[in-house]
């Protein structure tokens, strides 16, 4: 039909019309991009506007208080840092091992395929589901009333590990797959066995990619409130955990708690808390970007 109308090329010979269409499509796409950016800008402006006046050293180093001017988020900040490192401690060895198995050892059969599909699907499960799972497995003994670990740091870290494990596995697999096969063949040609090849060639090449994926997974973990609320059920704490079997609270929970207060000042405190969380997230993402760039420039050499 259009070919009949516009001849062999199918292009409308009216150049002006084509230009108009071209320009409007450009504007449409530009506007679509802007929706996201404008939304983010408004959000950040609002948070900075409310939160900056409340940001000071005392806010970082004080414990929560019912008086807004004395309140701080020290216990939540420390809880978040603890939780992040413990989650990394559990996630990295398991996630990387699983990725190595799936990429280097696993036979290409139905079972492997099922595992692969499940890992991808798990990455999309809502986080509260992990929270409830973690509560019934780690806090209580498989749903009974008996305590297993209690509502402590290690239970939170194990739960968040379940949450981010699929992300770490997927990222690690990507970077292991990106190691050129010629590296492996070269190592085999030198007489190395499989484990030596993985240890000496594959992992060092994939390391920056794995690290990047892990950092991004950790930044997802520290932003989560829902699963941690299921584990801790706790908002007011005035100490820093000294070992993994102590109670804890985290930044998103503290922010959530402040937002729900009747006094306006607490909502400004929540904004200040959001700034602290954002700075942490952006720092981690920046580290990830720097590492990725280093990695890319090296591969091109």
């Amino acid at each position: 039909m259009s070919q009949e109308k516009f001849g062999k090329t199918g292009i409308n010979p009216n150049r002006k019309l084509r230009k108009v269409v071209g320009a409007s499509v450009y504007i449409l796409f530009l506007l679509s991009t802007c929706v996201g950016i404008v939304g983010l800008a408004i959000l950040i402006f609002d948070v900075l506007d409310k939160g900056i006046p409340w940001l000071n050293w005392q806010f970082i180093t004080d414990y929560p208080s019912r008086k807004p001017e004395e309140a701080g988020l020290f216990s939540a900040l420390m809880g978040t840092i603890w939780l992040m490192f413990m989650t990394a401690l559990f996630t990295v060895p398991i996630g990387v091992s699983a990725a190595i198995y799936l990429e280097e050892y696993a036979p290409k059969n139905l079972l492997t395929r099922i595992i692969e599909i499940n890992v991808s699907n798990l990455a999309g499960v809502p986080s509260i589901v992990y929270g409830l799972l973690g509560m019934s497995i780690f806090v209580y003994q498989f749903g009974s009333d008996e305590m297993f670990l209690d509502r402590v740091l290690i239970a939170g870290a194990l739960t968040l590990s379940l949450l981010v494990l699929p992300i770490v596995i997927l990222a690690s697999r990507e970077s292991i797959r990106a190691v050129p096969d010629s590296y492996r063949q070269g190592a085999y040609a030198m007489g190395a066995d499989k484990w030596q090849v993985i240890k000496g060639v594959v992992l060092p090449s994939a390391f920056p990619g794995i690290l990047t994926g892990t950092i991004l997974a950790m930044s997802r973990a520290i932003g989560e409130a829902a699963p941690v609320i299921a584990i801790t059920a706790l908002v007011y704490i005035t100490y820093i955990p000294k070992h993994p079997f102590e109670r804890f609270t985290v930044l998103p929970i503290q922010i959530f708690n402040w937002v729900a207060r009747p006094q306006d000042d607490f909502r400004s405190l929540a904004a200040a808390g959001i700034i602290v969380l954002l700075v942490m997230l952006l720092t981690m993402n920046a580290i990830a970007v720097v590492l990725r760039n280093k990695y890319q420039s090296r591969s091109e050499e």
Binding site: Y63, S65, R66, A233, L234, V235, Y236, I237, T238, R247
Partner: peptide, 26 residues
């Protein structure tokens, strides 16, 4: 009741800093 317990815990901690009072909202 949480705001009351939190306020009491905060004042209590000023006198007895070594006691840990965990106040939750369930």
């Amino acid at each position: 009741v949480y705001p009351i317990s939190e306020a009491v815990a905060e004042e209590f901690n000023k006198l007895y800093p070594k006691v840990r009072v965990n106040v939750g909202v369930s």
